[in-house]
Design a protein around this nucleic acid. Structure first.
Lengths: 254, 254
DNA sequence: CGCTGCCTTGATCTTCTTCAAAACGTGTGG
DNA sequence: CCACACGTTTTGAAGAAGATCAAGGCAGCG
């Protein structure tokens, strides 16, 4: 309706490819909740085990089915974890921001990557061989605990999504996905929460377990109601109350 | 059709309520993959921290929303983890057998039980306070690693189920659930794999994210094709090849 | 500008849920 | 030991939600 040539609120900052050069790595490491509270020299030793890697939008960071021999931590940017389903279909498992990790965690059970990771924006990650990470876990109980906690939380999230996916309607699921994304990646901007992670309708659909068309319809309807605004590659939530109200007994995640 | 008064292959052994009395606990503990490789005296110390609990069929072991202050490990029997959805609806998150654990793993993120646990059979569990378990993790790196690995595997399973739930048809999902159950809880019995865990059609439906009626229809159809046999509270898989073939690029889980 | 790809919208059609009722098993009490 | 009564399972028919198929519109980019 009243959708004139409105501002496209996209203001994507270019990320320097060398944003996490070796020099900066130590600082990044020390700020990760993961390694919080570790002694300076332990951090240095750990830092020496890490590698840093820059990626451009769309680059593949790790591929489903490859040997899982590295653990990755997102330092800057956002990363998309997806899992192949049918030809053409894929489930968008998660969207990761700064501090999130993925990749070969287990040495035994999961010898191969269960998911494909791609860079949604120019990103930079740090990575470490699983062997070395295991070593760190063994050496630093606090890291072990932290890892267990993060994994538990993620497991809960995944199960919560399962619950949502089954009982809820497509539009409820979409609303839920938007709230989840807003909470993790949203930026407050004059009263709205802007999600400027470049997620296509197809991506959103994949997160909600529905089709591109349905996703589009739902977003249109929400816009019509003034609950959100959206455009190509961005969504802004204007009334998150109303959005939450769409979802029966929802729970915050992550 | 040819479904005459066939044998009900149920042979459910009664489980003594005291099957895991303190005396037996040590043995059980030492056989858990979890604590494999620990020294005798470490095991004894750990054992001292554990409590043992017996449950009858249908008993509630832990309730969704309660404070998560204990970790449980299934010693004997099977346990059902479910999560409330809509009034009347619930998602059956998982079915646990010997050696599986659940409950408060994280101290921070998950201060409350995300799931309700009920005993599917007479079961006996051992449990430990989360604080004590954290202590064990800190003290015994091998347990930490094992925990991380188990959690990773579970996370993967949950995500795999997510993938299934979205792209697949109800019958494919059901087939998948049956295979999963068979792999974890099935017993080989003259050429068939028998799942004698007393799961109702409603339970199966909840695992597959569908309704009782649809579950029933699908099982009927599979029986008609000779792929399975089923009755009240049991399913036997006669041709797991055929069952797998129902599912596009499936993956083993857990 | 005109192309290419993304997004929107419409119409049809399949699948699954929902509502309803009958058949079956199981355990119970006579 | 039999018969009844309950809950589970099965089956049927109608309905709704969403997938699929098919165009048309709009933004960004060369």
């Amino acid at each position: 309706m009243a959708s004139r040539k409105r501002d496209t609120p996209l203001r994507r900052e270019k990320i320097e490819a060398d944003a996490c050069s070796p020099a900066l790595r130590l600082r990044i490491l020390s700020e990760l909740p993961f390694f919080e509270g570790l002694a300076e020299r332990d951090l240095e030793r750990i830092n020496a085990r890490f590698r840093d890697l820059g990626f451009h939008t769309g680059d593949t960071i790790a591929r489903e089915g490859d040997r899982a021999e590295r653990l990755y931590i997102v330092a800057v940017g956002t990363v998309r974890l997806s899992r192949y389903a049918e030809p053409g279909q894929s489930l968008l498992v998660d969207v990761l921001g700064t501090g999130d990790f993925f990749g070969g965690m287990a040495g035994y059970g999961l010898s191969r990557n269960p998911d494909t990771a791609t860079a949604l924006t120019s990103s930079c990650l740090i990575s470490i061989g699983t062997d070395h990470f295991r070593e760190i876990i063994v050496r630093h109980p606090s890291v072990a605990l932290r890892t267990v906690e993060r994994l538990s939380a993620r497991l809960d999230t995944a199960r919560e999504m399962l619950r949502q996916l089954m009982g809820f309607s497509a539009s409820q699921r979409l609303s839920f996905v938007l709230l989840r994304l807003a909470a993790r990646l949203g930026e407050a901007r004059d009263g709205e929460t802007l999600i400027q992670t470049p997620l296509s309708r197809e991506d959103l659909a994949a997160m909600a377990g529905t089709t591109t068309e349905t996703a589009s319809r739902v977003l249109s309807e929400l816009s019509r109601q003034g609950i959100i605004r959206s455009g190509r590659g961005w969504v802004a939530i204007r009334d998150s109350e109303a959005l939450s109200a769409e979802i029966p007994n929802s729970r915050g995640l992550d």
